[in-house]
Amino acid sequence: MASVKPAVPFDELFAGVPVMAILRGMPVDKTLELAARAWDLGIECVEVPVQDEAAGQVLAAVVAAGAERGKPVGAGTVTSAERLGRAVAAGAAFTVAPGLDPDVVRAGVAAGLPHLPGVATPTDVQAARALGLTWLKAFPASVLGVDWFRAMRGPFPEVPLVATGGIDAGNAAAYLAAGARVVAVGSALEDPAQLPLLAGLLHR
Rank of each mutant, 00 (worst) to 15 (best):
L136G: 00
A127V: 03
G66I: 01
V104G: 06
G74R: 02
S80L: 03
V119N: 03
H115E: 04
A127R: 14
R129P: 00
L100H: 05
L144C: 14
L100C: 09
A111W: 13
G132A: 08
R153T: 13
G145H: 11
D103N: 12
A151W: 07
L131P: 08
V73L: 15
T121N: 14
R150E: 14
A67C: 00
L144S: 13
Q126G: 02
H115R: 07
P155K: 13
R69Y: 09
D101W: 14
G74F: 00
K71P: 01
T95F: 06
E68T: 13
W135M: 02
L144P: 09
A138W: 10
V105T: 09
V62S: 08
A81E: 15
V104K: 08
A64E: 12
G91V: 08
G132K: 10
W148S: 12
R153F: 10
A89V: 09
G145C: 15
G85I: 08
G99D: 13
L116T: 02
P117M: 05
W135R: 02
G118S: 10
L100I: 14
L59D: 04
T123M: 07
A54F: 11
R83F: 09
K71R: 14
V96D: 00
V109D: 11
T134Q: 11
V125F: 01
A141T: 04
G56Q: 07
V78I: 02
D101G: 06
P102L: 04
G154F: 00
A93T: 01
Q126K: 14
V143F: 11
V105N: 06
Q57E: 03
A64W: 01
A151F: 07
L116P: 00
V105M: 06
T121S: 15
L131V: 14
L133K: 00
T121F: 07
Q57C: 05
A110F: 08
A127G: 04
G74K: 05
G56M: 04
G91P: 12
R106K: 10
R83M: 11
L113N: 05
V78S: 04
A111G: 10
G76P: 03
R83N: 06
F94S: 08
V73N: 10
V58H: 13
E82H: 13
A64P: 01
K137R: 13
R86C: 01
L144K: 10
K71N: 02
M152S: 05
A93P: 05
F94Q: 07
L116Q: 10
V119H: 10
L59C: 08
R153A: 07
V105Y: 01
R83H: 12
A65Q: 09
M152G: 04
F94W: 12
S142F: 13
G132R: 09
A138E: 09
F94I: 10
R106W: 05
V58A: 09
G70Q: 11
L131M: 15
P140L: 09
G74V: 06
V105W: 03
P72K: 04
R86A: 03
E82T: 07
A130F: 02
D147Q: 12
V96Q: 01
